[in-house]
Simulated assay, not measured.
Amino acid sequence: MKNSWIIDISYGHESFREEAPEELVQQRVSSILETLGVEPCELSVSFVSDDEIQELNKTYRDRDETTDILSFVQDDEVEDFSWPELVYEDDAQPAEIRVLGDMVLSLDTLKRNAQSFSVETDEELFRLLIHGVLHLLGFDHATNDESEPMLVQQEQLLVKLGGSKR
């Protein structure tokens, strides 16, 4: 199943590659998708600065503030944007790939979060990738309270995947 995921990774600044290496991000997102049993899909992950994510947050959520991650779910009902992409599996019939959407992470906020929560930046990166994938799969939370079912699932996945040092 691993070969059927298309994970596009981009960086707002070249220096962000060192903080969130492409190979590591690919591996982490693949392990999340595999653990959740997600079928062939495509998604993107972009790493940006606080200024860039603040502008996106203002434009798309009407919140003029920074945030750690934004998830933009691909709406399957928007006809103007749906063209099928095909994957061929072992000479079988082509399978349509589900486009999940886009995740945008601020590395600036990620680092502040890690310091605030007394965790390594690597752990916080893994946490945010899980968080974003869950949003792209349709999960949501009303608050940031740790008892929110989505946030409980996020932390359980983080432990299961070996990303938590707690």
Score class of each variant (00 low, 15 high):
residue 3 N to L: 14
residue 6 I to Q: 12
residue 8 D to G: 10
residue 11 Y to H: 07
residue 12 G to S: 11
residue 13 H to S: 15
residue 14 E to L: 14
residue 18 E to D: 12
residue 18 E to C: 01
residue 21 P to A: 10
residue 21 P to L: 11
residue 27 Q to Y: 07
residue 28 R to A: 01
residue 33 L to Y: 10
residue 35 T to H: 15
residue 36 L to S: 04
residue 40 P to V: 10
residue 41 C to L: 00
residue 43 L to E: 04
residue 46 S to V: 04
residue 46 S to Y: 06
residue 47 F to V: 13
residue 47 F to K: 09
residue 49 S to T: 15
residue 50 D to V: 00
residue 50 D to C: 01
residue 52 E to D: 11
residue 59 T to S: 07
residue 61 R to F: 15
residue 64 D to R: 08
residue 67 T to G: 02
residue 68 D to F: 13
residue 74 Q to G: 00
residue 76 D to C: 00
residue 77 E to H: 09
residue 77 E to D: 07
residue 80 D to F: 02
residue 81 F to E: 09
residue 88 Y to S: 10
residue 89 E to H: 13
residue 90 D to L: 04
residue 91 D to C: 06
residue 95 A to N: 11
residue 96 E to K: 12
residue 98 R to V: 13
residue 100 L to V: 01
residue 103 M to E: 04
residue 106 S to L: 05
residue 107 L to I: 12
residue 110 L to E: 00
residue 112 R to T: 05
residue 113 N to G: 06
residue 116 S to Q: 10
residue 116 S to W: 05
residue 118 S to Q: 07
residue 120 E to S: 15
residue 120 E to T: 10
residue 121 T to W: 08
residue 122 D to N: 09
residue 123 E to L: 01
residue 126 F to W: 07
residue 127 R to M: 06
residue 132 G to R: 09
residue 133 V to T: 08
residue 137 L to G: 00
residue 138 G to C: 08
residue 141 H to W: 02
residue 144 N to S: 08
residue 147 S to Q: 13
residue 148 E to N: 12
residue 150 M to G: 02
residue 150 M to H: 01
residue 153 Q to E: 10
residue 154 Q to S: 05
residue 154 Q to V: 05
residue 159 V to M: 09
residue 160 K to P: 00
residue 161 L to T: 12
residue 162 G to F: 03
residue 164 S to I: 05
residue 166 R to Y: 06
residue 166 R to Q: 09
